[in-house]
Amino acid sequence: MTFLLALAAATLPVPAGEQPVDPYVVDNANAGAVPVRGDALWQAFHGQAGVGRIVDSLVLLNTSDPRISDIFKGQDLVRLRRTLKEQFCYILGGGCDYTGRSMKDAHKDMGLQTADLAALIENLQKAMRDEGVPFGAQNRLLAKLAPMKRDAIER
């Protein structure tokens, strides 16, 4: 069974513009949070287009943020944007599947600290503000992301 799953994972195609990653089992559980119910929150984020703008803006803010830009050097930003959009869409009730790695695997050996996460959250808050997402709706997404700290932080 494990062999078959590994084989299935290994045969996943590499999306255009992305670098290959080590095989892993694709599962929505990798998103690290249970989706919200209903589509009110998805609407508050202006759906696919809004989440697309927020993630693009977030990645740009992070890569130009002197506090955390080093973390993103050498990372596959094309893949990061795609999987972040999937993850937010999945969590916000947008009906997507998440095909990325688990939070633990995705952040492995990055040596992240709580302060790095706080900087990222501040950048996400700015991206959501710029998109015009109401503050309460912003916090509902942050509430889903916050517990991922336990898997993302290593020291």
């Binding site: 949070a33 942050l142 509430a143 916050a146 517990p147 700290k149």
Partner: peptide
Amino acid sequence: GDAVYDQDR
């Protein structure tokens, strides 16, 4: 506990 990050507990 962590008042801010433990949002699933």
